[in-house]
Design a protein around this nucleic acid. Structure first.
Lengths: 330, 330
DNA sequence: TTGAAAGCGCTAACAT
DNA sequence: ATGTTAGCGCTTTCAA
């Protein structure tokens, strides 16, 4: 692999001149520039990023840690961050925490070891992630996306979960649904917690017993399937099921239909997130659309502001979602 | 950020001793080790990867370039590669080529600049990728996955597309389907080409006219929807549609049902890849299951063999897929 | 405008 | 077992 030395020799100039040409410094004659470019091209020279970054003490690299790379929902956020990074001339290092706080810590440390200049994190666990973030914050700015962490001074950008749940309940109430149930996930992340809390608080304005008709498991299709059977085991089932996310809704719908019920005729079902699957399920799922692009760009904006040191106190930003009415809610 | 100097001072030893302790070299006394560990912990020291990698001339890092990070199918391969990399003590740098040969070239160069020790590539374009690969091969081993590139000496691991299509046609023939059609994608990647060729060659053993009943577009749901309408416009439509992948099949099914036809009653439909969506569509899609784990591990195995210089001539490996029969093929 | 040389933070060879 | 030091490949003073 050709080094800057080789290019200098080939071009008949000093290595300083080669560096100047390649980094775009101004003070170079056209002759030198041409000679260097020719030599570099001829030798297939490529700047050694390690040496360059070590010397200039800048990597122009961002890190991002997400709970699961296989989740298209998170990937949509990755895309947005990647675009923002590219626009600023930064590269993105993506890591998967496998929804495990220990792995998340290891990944964050690996990113810091690689001297990333900032980190975007989708925390995997509200408790476990806090310590990791605090450690990282001592070295670089960190911004959390999608899920928030309480009691920590950092920029956090997420959807207004409460507004989403309120919109869903208002919609169902407008369709004359009265007996509601909520199928959500255990309270390990803020989204699970906030959606449940919003449901509990808001639904009692319509129907008190509905506030206690709550089942908590995981954000998966499988849990939705199980939960639906539990709901049906009840003597007088609800006429609408508010789900914590779309995957759960897909599972609930599948089981309800397998048991011979009509959705939404017998029971309406709603989701949250508006993942692509919503349009493929029959009936298509009524849900809350996540403003992923807005969340991502706002997160990146704040991270870069911190990197440049031009930002004020840490803030928690909540982006308003929108209701998407489809067939599953009658 | 604490440096090795600071730790050495804090521990009252030389920087060499700190390095020895942290890199796990043997020749250190227990006292020194303890002192270093304590000091490092106290200062929150983390080895600077840039300096370390530059010095040892080894990054223990692999690069991977895939056409689209949003495609869960590719992500399944990423997961496998990541696991293999971790098992070897390597980290993985993931890049998205956005299905664009120019971007792919830029990404590959960025990886080389970062001194990755090997690259796993899912080429975005059979023509455009060849040159990029040849360039990269001058510096590090490159292994292609899922899609192959003709006329280039490198390890390539992909599914046996022909075997998959043959299995599909045998299955449909066994169900007494005779008038077949193929809906695939333009021939920019090997998978599109090989599946079409296999269809054309093999279907004529059953029904000659079927070999010409071919529509080519993209590997998307939207194209499947359009293609279905074109198929129906024909006076005497086929009784089974073999699709180039599952997304196309999903689109075909959606349109056929929207036009009032029964799948598979009126027309059977099959896919290729066995993505998750297959089980959610109604009717669930009969398809060819990709042995993604096998492809990934075999690719990683070959890459590491090349990195260690313990491998023979470049080879093209074809992994056998399996047929998954579901409701869409009657 | 150009070149010589220092030094980024670390590891490993060499000396002790 | 430990310390001293050269040097990985590059960028950026500093001089000329």
């Amino acid at each position: 692999m050709a080094k800057i030395r080789d290019v200098a020799r080939e071009a008949g100039v000093s290595i300083a001149s080669v560096s100047r040409v390649l980094t775009g410094a101004r003070r170079v004659s056209d002759d030198t520039k041409a000679a260097v470019l020719t030599a570099a091209e001829k030798l297939g020279y490529r700047t050694n990023y390690l040496a360059s970054a070590l010397r200039r003490q800048a990597t122009r690299t961002l890190g991002m840690v997400i709970p699961r790379i296989a989740n298209p929902y998170f990937i949509a956020l990755v895309q947005t961050i990647e675009e923002s990074a590219q626009a600023q001339g930064y590269e993105l290092l993506l890591c998967d925490s496998a929804d495990d706080a220990d792995i998340e810590k290891r990944r964050m440390r690996a990113l810091l070891s690689r001297q990333v200049e900032g980190i975007i994190l989708i925390p995997c666990d509200e408790k476990g992630s806090a310590e990791t973030v605090r450690e990282a914050l001592r070295e670089v700015p960190v911004v959390s996306l999608d899920r928030s962490i309480r009691g920590i001074a950092m920029d956090q950008v997420c959807v207004d979960n409460r507004a989403g749940i309120v919109a869903i309940i208002d919609h169902l109430a407008g369709k004359a649904h009265r007996r509601l149930a909520f199928v959500g996930a255990q309270q390990t992340v803020s989204t699970a917690r906030e959606r449940l809390e919003a449901y509990r608080e808001y639904v009692r304005e319509w129907d008190l017993p509905s506030a206690d008709r709550v089942l908590l498991g995981e954000f998966t299709v499988e849990w939705g399937e199980q939960a639906a059977d539990r709901i049906l085991a009840d003597g007088l089932p609800p006429d609408a099921v508010v789900c914590g996310n779309d995957l759960i809704a897909a599972g609930v719908i599948r089981t309800l239909r397998a048991r011979g019920l009509d959705v939404p005729g017998d029971i309406a079902v709603t989701g949250f997130d508006d993942i692509e699957l919503c349009r493929f399920i029959e009936p298509a799922i009524t849900t809350v659309h996540q403003p992923l692009r807005d969340i991502g760009t706002e997160g990146a904006r704040r991270l870069f502001a911190r990197i440049e040191g031009t930002s004020g106190p840490a803030a928690r930003v909540r982006i308003r979602p929108s209701l998407v009415v489809r067939a599953s809610s009658g």
